[in-house]
Simulated assay, not measured.
Amino acid sequence: MFKKTSLQDWETLVQKQLKTEDIYTILSEDNLENLSVKPYYDSVKSSLANLPKVEESTHLVSSYHESAEENVFAFLLNNNVEDLTEKVIFVNDANLSEHISLDENNRYFSLVDIFSDNEKGKINVQLGKELLSKNFERNLCVDISLHQNAGASMIQQLSIGLAKAKELTEIFGAEIINKIIFKVSLGSNYFFEISKIRALKLLFNQFSKEFGLDETPFIFAETTFRNKSKNDPENNLIRSTLELSAAMIGGADAVFSNDYKMENSDSVSEEISFKQQIVLAYESIINVFNDAGNGSYYVEDLTQQLAEKSWKLFREMEEKGGYCELLKIGTIQTEINEQAMKEQNWVEEGKTKIIGVNLYPKLEKVKSSEEMYAGNEIKAVRLAEMFE
């Protein structure tokens, strides 16, 4: 039996080591989400129930290559491929969804987003109807990966995800809630990203209860481009490995690793990127755990803070007319741009460190934030572009 260390015991020890009574000023750090993060956790306000996945184990998704057919079980398709059997297939192109040959031995999911995020809130309703007519397990994608790559905060990403799901229910009815798949991108803030996935589960479940349902979201998670650089691409491998790990531990149903090379990518770099998932899954088996973050005071607290703040922002968006209406008047674009500029300034000032870009070695700035971002547009911008 180990003696329980109380918060007072911990504070007394740290005060002695830091030679000050004001330890929280020294140990506290700002974060871009404005979440309250304590240096030490000995409890959590309220424990969460286990947050399950839809799938029994996380799918490890690869871009399609003929040579991978035998050993890979989940593919991301941008072109029609025939004669695939016993595969999980994620359709990534609207034109492909019209012509793909469905095989009853495969499972099909659509990653086609019918929202035009930069065309004044337009929704391709006809495409949505066509997708719903397909024999896919999940037909309608809510893509918030663009918003992450554009610099949106996690709270903005989650609230936008709910707001887009709400728009879909208003058009197609509540019966499509279990036909929705979320596509998310994950960045470098490891424990925050684990908590973001878990918060999405909480939020969507709460959202579904508004319609008398009890649904778990299907989450397709991919590595971000936001923190990647052209210089020293091997550093991108380290970043994406952490992102994939966060996705699996957070409970994503499928993961995909974008090519770690920003330039001169080829079949070898694509294969290496995919095999990161293999190493994580087969060396640590984190793709099979059901809510591995459950019981961690830190992760539980972050999850609840993200969920509460995101639900509040979602409600505010709905009161102002919803996602599409706020796109039409430019509110979403402006708010994401403000957050993205703040994150970019942190990189410029060195508060956010990117190895090989603004740390070891420190590159010279060649672009200003104003040159990189457009306040009236949601567009993907890499933080390292300032130095490239």
Rank of each mutant, 00 (worst) to 15 (best):
M1P: 13
S6V: 09
K19F: 08
E21G: 10
D22N: 12
I26Y: 12
L27S: 07
S28K: 12
E29I: 10
E29L: 13
E29T: 14
E33V: 04
P39M: 06
Y40H: 07
D42I: 12
D42Q: 14
V44N: 03
N50E: 10
K53P: 01
S63Q: 12
Y64T: 14
H65C: 15
E66G: 14
S67L: 10
A68N: 15
E69D: 08
E70G: 13
N71D: 15
N71G: 08
A74S: 12
F75A: 09
L76Y: 14
N80L: 13
D83Q: 15
V88K: 13
F90N: 06
F90Q: 01
N92E: 11
D93S: 11
S97D: 02
E98T: 14
E98Q: 09
E104K: 12
N106E: 06
R107N: 15
F109A: 06
D113K: 05
D113N: 08
S116N: 04
D117R: 12
N124R: 03
L127R: 12
G128W: 11
K129V: 08
L131R: 05
S133F: 09
K134Y: 11
N135C: 13
F136N: 12
L140H: 11
L140D: 04
L146D: 02
M154H: 15
I155L: 09
Q157A: 12
I160W: 11
A163L: 03
I176L: 04
I181K: 09
F182M: 00
A199L: 11
A199F: 12
F204A: 10
N205W: 03
E210S: 13
F211Q: 01
F211A: 04
F211L: 03
E215M: 13
E215C: 03
T216Q: 08
I219F: 00
T223F: 00
S229R: 00
D232R: 00
D232W: 00
P233H: 06
N235I: 10
L237I: 14
R239K: 11
T241L: 06
G251K: 04
A254V: 08
A254T: 11
V255L: 08
F256N: 09
N258E: 05
Y260P: 00
K261H: 05
M262E: 07
E271H: 11
I272T: 06
K275P: 02
V279A: 01
L280G: 00
F289V: 07
N290D: 13
S296Q: 01
S296K: 06
Y297V: 03
E300H: 08
Q304F: 08
Q305C: 05
K309C: 01
L313T: 10
R315I: 14
E318F: 01
E318P: 00
E319R: 15
K320P: 02
G322I: 07
T331W: 13
I332A: 09
Q333H: 15
E335C: 02
Q339S: 15
E343Y: 07
N345A: 13
G350P: 10
I355V: 11
G356A: 03
N358S: 02
L359M: 14
K362H: 03
K362D: 08
L363C: 03
E364Q: 03
V366N: 05
K367Q: 07
E370W: 05
E371S: 00
M372V: 04
A384W: 00
E385D: 15
F387Q: 00
